[in-house]
Design a protein around this nucleic acid. Sequence first.
RNA 1: GGUCCCGUGGUGUAGCGGCCUAACACGCCUCCCUGUCAAGGAGGAGAUCGGCAGUUCGAAUCUGCUCGGGAUCGCCA
Length: 604
Amino acid sequence: MYKNKNCGEPNSLDEGTEIIVAGWVNRRRDHGNLIFIDLRDKSGVLQVVFNPEVSSDAHGLASDLRSEWVVQIKGKIVKRISGAENDSISTGSIELQASEIKILNKSKTPPFEISNEIEIDDQTRLAYRFIDLRRPKMQKLFTLRHKITKLIWDYLSDRDFTHIETPILLKSTPEGARDYVVPSRIHPGKFYALPQSPQQLKQILMVSGFDRYFQIARCFRDEDLRADRQPEHTQLDLEMSFVHQDDVMVLVEGLYKHITHEILGDNFKQNDRDFLRLSYKESMERFGTDKPDLRFEMELVTVSEELKNTESNVFNNVLNQQGVIRGIVAPGAGDYDRRKTDEIIDLAKSSGASGLVYISLSKDFDSMENLTDENYKSPLKKFLTLNIVKELAIKMSARPGDLILLVADQENKVNTVLSNLRNFLGEKLNLYDKKEIIFAWVYDFPLFEWDEDLKKWEPAHHVFSSPKEEHLDFLKSDPGKVHADLFDLVCNGMEMGSGSIRIHDPNIQKKVFSIIGYEEDEIDDRFGQLIKSFSYGAPPHGGMGLGLDRFVATLAGEKAIREVIAFPKTQSAQDPLFDSPNKISDQQLEELFINLDLPDEEEA
RNA sequence: GGUCCCGUGGUGUAGCGGCCUAACACGCCUCCCUGUCAAGGAGGAGAUCGGCAGUUCGAAUCUGCUCGGGAUCGCCA
């Protein structure tokens, strides 16, 4: 070893001992005759003093040191002189009196400082990711990620789960997301596809009798990127045999509580409570979304009834077309000026609303009963009479000084818009503690959704979820009524994972496929292997797929999963460090029998 | 594919029609300095303002296109 102690370890108990450390020069403070070096490694920072009276050789070398040089230093741990202690580092009471130094490697001046405080452009960070990852904050994030995966491994291993790896080179089962594909050399013209998830494989493993499977699995989807979406993400994939929905939920809830508690300790207030369970219907009614942020109230209220007798075309047109009017109350936002209300309207429009009606309530009245004409303002004031506003405000539990926001449209659009507004305002108005983490289950999802564009039924989640037994009859008569044993784990307004009890009866599976409109040979091509396995004795089974990147990011308080992925891609799916994706040689193309036919602007 | 924000020395920002032959902080280089830890002091180098085209007597500053980054809608079984 090049060292017998880590930089962050020595303390006053080590005074007088000789140690060898190695690491990076974090900072140099050169006083001429006395030189201080902050030596950094993963464990922390240690101050090293070079005194020419202790070693003139070491001191001579130290005067050349620069940031990020890699050095090995031998010396004696000594107590710092009185008054020179530094409470901000773990080794602040002592320092290393250097007697020997060996320069292991020099470094160019890094493009940015290795420090936690600075904010650097993402592209620069990724192009120099090896330096970016040196920052203590990043090291902490990946240590955290490791800790979480270890907790998963331990927890599930203790409960008889077996980790099994499934292939990355698989087959395209096109549906939902676009596949990443890999050409086959041995089979000209044929392609593997990278799995969007190990779904079929884990179900086949259940058929094989493994009983309980899990995998920290990489999943690939060739879709547009977001702060919480990367082309490849990691999923905690698990599946269990002979279970009902509740068994899976209880297992996963135990796991997530355990991990969150291990990481956050007492800051995780939900630890001694069950995760809230909301039916899909309830979640949509109260929050307008199937992934509500439960850190704050601000629920949606339907006010179609209260507004059905206005003179306003905005409302009447919508109501005449079976639309709804729903609203939320932004507490204390009654004094928002034009600029702020415009911002809210813009957000509503960008979420798909044709418009947004607001009513600002002033603070200068005590209760809704005493509301007067002077106490409220609204662009639609001439239609919103005092009595209507009073009734509305009472129904919505608005208080003086609040801002009422109303959206009139078809129900699903209203819900999308209001849930986006709700999330926006929740953050803007500081309605919750940003450090808080609240999980919930949303269950009892419909199995199918009607796709208005394609005029056909689409799987609401995925095609393998089992219809509820009591709904089997609806499969033929009214697929929209079929609910499934399908459930999501949500946290702070994010979907953390999705699970279900799977279909294990090949006949029901075929029926579900046919409702979605798959042809017989198409089913065979995409799902033949699964159906085939089902005909050889498939146990009832169910499981979940849980986004690991999002979970780690949430526990770390990060918004973008890029922060918890060592080598992520930019929003245009590129890696600035490796410069991927990239061209391959003509020879490689030839071997694969691939001719490129690029659009003109791609030529160069 | 759409919408929005951003793009100025190595990094972060200021400047938003002529005062800019571009400012500040950090970093970098040289020298001084025995107790600093965001060390200090003195001096110095470094960007033509993402790119292209246009408007203008004059553009970092205005317009269009384009490239890149970010956010978001669509998309993501």
